[in-house]
Structures are given as C-alpha cells and as structure tokens.
Design a protein around this nucleic acid. Sequence first.
DNA 1: AGAAACATGTAATCGGTTACATGATTAT
DNA 2: ATAATCATGTAACCGATTACATGTTTCT
Lengths: 198, 198
Amino acid sequence: MDVRTLCLGILSLCDASGYEIKKLFEDGPFSEFLDASYGSIYPSLTRLTEDGLVSFQTMEQDGRPDKKVYSITANGRIAFMSALDEDPSEDRYRSEFLFYLVFSHLMSANRVAQLIDARIETYKNKMRTISDMLETADTPGARFLAGHSKAVIEAAIRYLEENRHLVEGEAMLGQSASVGHHLEHRQSSERAVGRTGS
Amino acid sequence: MDVRTLCLGILSLCDASGYEIKKLFEDGPFSEFLDASYGSIYPSLTRLTEDGLVSFQTMEQDGRPDKKVYSITANGRIAFMSALDEDPSEDRYRSEFLFYLVFSHLMSANRVAQLIDARIETYKNKMRTISDMLETADTPGARFLAGHSKAVIEAAIRYLEENRHLVEGEAMLGQSASVGHHLEHRQSSERAVGRTGS
DNA sequence: AGAAACATGTAATCGGTTACATGATTAT
DNA sequence: ATAATCATGTAACCGATTACATGTTTCT
C-alpha cells in the first residue's frame, strides 16, 4: 500500500493539509505503524487531485503560510474502499536494536546496558503518548489501536527488564553455534576448490 | 544499517553462502526483525569481497550448483565492530493490518473478523517456529531474542482475542473524530480562498 | 508431471528519503 | 539570538525489490 492510499485513508476520516498528514504519521495515532516523509506526501496529494480522488481549498492564514486543505471526493471514497478489499500486506518490522543484541558478545556489558536503558526509556515515552491517546480516543477503532500498542509495548518492557541479564554478562567471545546449526552443511559431498578475496 | 553490514554481522557468526544468508533472513533467527532479498545480498557480498572484508571458497557439490561459502576476514571483524559502536537506528514497524483496523467502520463485521482470524493464525504459526528456536537456542543471545519475540507475540494474540469485539461491531458509518482532534484547526484566522480539483 | 529447493547473478524499475529552496512567526 | 513550528514543493539520489536468465535434483 503506497503513500497515496495512506493519504486517501486519512482524508476519509477528516480534511487535512499535507503538513497535517505528516504530523499524523509522526506523532498522531498512526505513528506506531506507519511513516511517510513530505517528499512522498506532497506528490501523492498532487496525484490524487489529478485523479479526482481528492480536492483542496486554499486557506489564507494570518502570520502563517497559506495552507491547502484537502478533502476526499466521492470517487476517492470508492477507491479507498476498493483498496480495503485487497488483503493487507504482511507487517514489516525492522529492528537494528535486536540485531545488535545478537552480537552482545562483541560489546562490553556497559554498552549493552546502555543500549537497553535507552530502549526502555524510549518505550516509556511512547507509553505516555499512548496513555494520552487512550484517554482522548473517542471511537472504538482508536481505542483498539492505542490499546494494542500499549499491550505490545508493555510486554516488551517487561521482557527487557526481566531478561536483560541474559545479554549483559561480560563479553564471552567465540562463535555462536545457534546460527550455525540453521545451516546444515552437507560435509559429505562438498569440496573446496578455490579461495579468493582474503 | 545496510544489507552489507547485515551480511558482515552474520558472517561474523558463521560462514555462509548468499543463499544461506537469505534463508537466515527468511526462516532463521533473524526473520522476525530483518529482511533482504537476493538482489541486495549478492551484490553486497561482491562489494564486501572487493573491500577485503570477506573472502570466499567455491564449493563443488554433487547434484547441486556450486556454492560460494563466504568467511569474514580480520578487517571484516574490525569493520563490523566499528559499526556496532554507532547507535542503532530506530525500529521501523509498518503494519497495513493495523491501518486497516482504523477503518473497521468501512468494512463488514465479517471482513474484520476474517482479517483478525488470519492475523491470529499467522501469529500462532510464528509461535511454533519460535518455540523450536527456544529449544535449540544454545547461546544467551539466541534465547534472549527468541524469548523477546515470544513475549511480544503472545501479548498481541491475547490482546486481539480479548478486544476484537471493539472493532467487530457492524459498520457504523460516520467520521472518526479521534483523528480530527489531533488537528486543531484555528478557525479564527482561516479563510478559504478557492477550491480546486473536485 | 509439476512444484519446490538449491544456487548465483544482472538489469530495469520504482518508491521513497534526503537535501535543497523559501520565509514568517513564536517560543526559549 | 537561536531553535522550533508552520507550510509547500522539487530534484537528486539511492537502496532495494522484481523480474529475468539458467539448470539440476528431489519431493509430491
């Protein structure tokens, strides 16, 4: 699902400018599971306008730049509902933090502790944001979303606090066999025939 | 952190071919929080070889194509450990599923239920994979990672099962104010000056 | 018979980010 | 003073995915 459809969905909930849509991705209820930059939002809005799926009104403001407030059109609503008929793509989760922890044996215990402390701190900040959302959520969908984030983040914090000792032992070098055994080299019929590049 | 560094990290744990690295991203212990395609892995390995950070041995195999088994070099280890000194970038999580649920009011209760059922099914499959990993994990890092995934996924399943009723009520149309109030339009000094595109 | 696994690699494409350009106002 | 917020937009760049190209063996 591209940024165009994401914008269309947001505009099906309320009118907004490109700047405001970006804020919704950044701090609002969508921040936990979506993101898009101005460089993708503005061109999307232009395309959607060309395709007749949204329209806009230019608003003059005192002491602020003009703003284009976009509204979804009837065709836009139809297009968005068609998009919802497609199955959602799989979640994509990418965490350098977790990748780092695979290599805790290459870092000092202090470094690992610092990494985990920072992570817990980030989570706790998010929890504050989410608690605010839960309080102000006035639709089931919004409450559901906020509650979901809360449940998952709470579980992550609890896990980190209870199990950090597992990776904070001082750097024990040596190879991790746990990855190796995912690759069962068939020693039998393998023959090395050359070495390059070292 | 680009695919090059990811490959370097994996090769710091054990020798592997490009194909095997891909499998590690796909089914192995990294599948929960990383991904990369052949189209990025093979060129990365070539670049790493050119830079002297890895080397490879060509292995002839009976009844299978030749395979290039890569090993990290001393310089490679140094480069990777330098990479670990940088702070990890923030997690990126992208979920169309959660985005869809914001619009549960635009879908039939059946469709929403079907979406949630599929999601729970996916989670339960993952749980099986992770249980296997937990059993075979022979290093603290591996156990820690698997345990983390387990804790988070369990929380998500529990939440979905206990709260799905919130979004499975039959389509109640109308606008969601919960997004709107994240955008406090300063009605006072705003003036519409034109409408375009509808 | 056909699909899936094994195995490597290139080229075209594409979506998206980063940086740039501009500029007033408000908060620190 | 300086940074941050408000506000829109373009161009360059880049990393990564997708599709293509090739071929054997094993599983269903």
